[in-house]
């Protein structure tokens, strides 16, 4: 189990789970943004990561 210091250093927030938010998984919210993301993927693809 990670220590508190390790958790803090990882910058991960503490999140409370609320399953009432599950309904938004299937809702078509922000669809115009998803369409933009798909368009960017289709036209320019993903960036290339170069390791130095």
């Amino acid at each position: 189990m990670k220590s508190i210091k390790e958790l803090n250093d990882k910058k991960i927030p503490i999140v409370r789970i609320d399953n009432s938010l599950e309904k938004y998984l299937k809702m078509p919210i922000f669809q115009d943004k998803v369409d933009k993301a798909n368009e960017a993927l289709r036209t320019i693809g993903l960036p290339k990561i170069t390791t130095k």
């Binding site: 999140v15 409370r16 789970i17 009432s20 938010l21 938004y24 998984l25």
Partner: peptide, 11 residues
């Protein structure tokens, strides 16, 4: 403070 559903895709 964040709350989320269990797959952590909606907050």
């Amino acid at each position: 403070e964040l709350i989320a559903e269990k797959t952590l895709r909606v907050y």
